[in-house]
């Protein structure tokens, strides 16, 4: 369902809105965006509500997500459903709604970013954009490709721009990457170094789908194939960007919450079981994520609950623990306990 093919029937395209959506300028509007995402994706992906929440949260927080899961557990379905939710309301540019890149060892950076091609007709070089020029990019099995390609991808993720032949091209404001990697079958892979892992806002370890959800998936396969729910409202690119802005400005972050977050990071650096603690960048990235999660829980303030829920996702792939320490999550829980407690005590203080 590619959008850039010419000769598309614009009038009937489901990807183009025909009525002007009201501008998003308060939290209610942002909440509406969240709801629309939720409803559509939940219909397409069953039994993965938690992962859906995380992905929406990351999208609204302007961060990227690394999904770590077994094959066939719905990663791609989730990413595609997300892409399906979006409406590109800027159809003039070269950027499309959704692209998927399947990483392989022999992939080259230009396969990702695009390349300049000589046109014999015009005797000029022109730029053929790569798959990163999309709003939502699914980077499948990102650890299977060479570091060269990985770094090209990661530059795009960090800077939201691509440099080809010394010319830097901007990506869209809403550039969102869902990368996946397979925790098994590590032979011939290039594990991402921690500096590159730092580019991902969340690293999500998905688990097997519960029995009931699995039954439901089987039962609803027919309906999903028939594109039921395709008429549910979608979200335009502008709406997402507006929602991001609204969330960042209107969800209140109390100074104690910031203290709590910083204290957790400090604790990770002080803990003898941790070789490298949480980076400052991770804290900067964390703030919008916390705000987004607060909104998604119908709050206009960030609470300790958000920190407790997200700290594992934000920090666990950024910490390097000493050899012999089995669980990063346990270390993080230990580091977070005391700051969270003092934040919780705040409620009873005058």
């Amino acid at each position: 369902m590619t959008m850039d093919t010419p000769g598309v029937d614009f009038e009937n395209s489901p990807h183009i809105t025909h009525t002007l959506a009201p501008a998003i300028n308060d939290l209610n509007g942002a909440w509406g965006v969240v709801e629309r995402f939720r409803n559509r994706i939940r219909l397409a992906v069953r039994g993965r509500d938690e992962a859906i929440e995380i992905v929406i949260c990351a999208l609204l927080a302007d961060g990227h997500v690394l999904l770590e899961d077994y094959p066939g557990s719905g990663k791609t379905t989730l990413a595609k459903a997300l892409g399906d939710c979006l409406i590109d309301d800027k159809p003039d540019d070269i950027i499309v709604t959704f692209r998927r890149i399947q990483f392989t060892p022999d992939l080259l950076p230009s396969d990702v970013t695009g390349t300049t091609i000589f046109d014999p007709n015009t005797h000029r070089f022109f730029f053929r954009s790569g798959p990163v020029f999309a709003h939502i990019v699914l980077a499948d099995e990102i650890n299977r490709t060479s570091p060269k390609v990985q770094s090209a991808m990661l530059e795009a993720m960090a800077e939201k721009q691509v440099t080809v032949d010394n010319r830097t091209r901007k990506l869209d404001e809403l550039f969102f990457v869902i990368a996946t990697q397979n925790p098994l079958d590590l032979a011939g892979t290039f594990p991402l170094p921690s500096a590159q892992l730092d580019r991902f806002l969340f690293k999500v370890k998905m688990t097997h789908v519960a029995r009931d959800a699995e039954l439901e998936i089987l039962a609803s396969a027919q309906a999903r194939r028939a594109n039921t729910g395709n008429d549910l409202p979608r979200v335009t690119r502008t709406e997402v960007c507006d929602a991001r802005r609204v969330i960042e400005t209107q969800v209140h972050v109390a100074p104690q919450v910031r203290e709590c977050l910083v204290d957790i990071a400090q604790n990770t650096r002080r803990d003898p079981r941790v070789l490298q603690g949480a980076s400052t960048r991770s804290l900067v990235l964390a703030m919008p994520a916390l705000q987004a999660r607060a909104l998604m829980n119908q709050r206009n303030y960030v609470s300790g609950e958000d920190i407790a829920a997200l700290s594992g996702l934000i920090f666990s792939h950024r910490l390097e623990v000493a050899p012999g320490v089995e669980s990063v999550d346990a270390v993080l829980a230990d580091c977070a306990r005391e700051p969270l407690e003092s934040l919780a005590r705040l409620a009873l203080k005058r």
Binding site: N300, S303, G304, A336, L340, A344, A347
Partner: peptide
């Protein structure tokens, strides 16, 4: 110790559901 307010009210949601309203108010 270390449990968040919301976490506590969620834990009690089965037996003391009304705690949530109070928790939300105080957190707000």
């Amino acid at each position: 110790y270390g449990e968040t307010r919301e976490g506590f009210s969620r834990r009690m949601a089965g037996s003391v559901p009304s705690l949530k309203a109070l928790t939300d108010e105080v957190q707000r």
